[in-house]
Simulated scan of single mutants.
Amino acid sequence: MPGVPALRFRAPEDRDAGFLRDLFTSAAPGRDLLPPALLEMQQQAQHQQWSELWGGNGNVVVEFDDVPAGRIWTAWRTRDVRVLDIALLPEFRGAGLGGRLLGDVCEAADLAGLDVRLNVARDNIAALALYQRNGFVTEEAGAVFLSLLRWHESARARGHRPS
């Protein structure tokens, strides 16, 4: 369709190391002040932990008009989809791309009859607003993170959470 930027999803490759480091660094304020070796250790530890807990198949690079723009990592389970991460480089934020990615996950989850769960930092106001606009509600409130839930379409139509 003309005028609609093309999204492409692919598995991370060795050539993405610098891009993924920049993405990891840009995702949290202050990370850019840490020594590069410490950042690399943190990034590797996160990748290893998420791969062990959730599997690595849901970790994909998002290209926007053939340019690496971000990453989305999801874990599809029998009752729900866990969105572990939606991260975009700063130059791709605020243009609706994150909402488009989230919308695609929610639409696919609805088709599969699955709820969607994710965590968000309490102070990430922009992300929290995006999630609330997409039907997420607070499931659990921690000191630093909120655990959010979006019931699948048929559950919302019934007005309650499926049992």
Rank of each mutant, 00 (worst) to 15 (best):
L130S: 01
L88A: 05
A108C: 07
E91T: 15
D16N: 00
A157I: 15
L149D: 01
L148K: 04
A95Q: 12
V4A: 10
L114A: 10
G113Y: 12
A37F: 15
E140K: 03
A6R: 08
A87W: 02
W73N: 04
N59T: 14
L118E: 06
V81G: 00
R156F: 09
N57Y: 10
Q49W: 15
E63M: 14
D32N: 02
D85P: 06
G99A: 07
L20C: 01
A87N: 02
R79P: 00
Q49N: 09
G113K: 14
A6Q: 04
Q132H: 11
F24W: 11
H47T: 15
E40F: 10
A129G: 14
A121L: 15
G30H: 07
A141M: 06
L102K: 08
L101R: 12
Q49F: 15
V62G: 03
L101I: 04
L97F: 11
S51C: 06
V116M: 10
F64M: 08
V144P: 00
D22M: 11
E107F: 08
A87F: 04
E153K: 14
F145N: 05
A27P: 01
V4C: 05
L101N: 06
L149F: 09
R8S: 11
L34Y: 06
G135T: 08
V83D: 00
T78H: 00
P29Y: 00
R15T: 11
W50V: 08
F145E: 13
R100P: 08
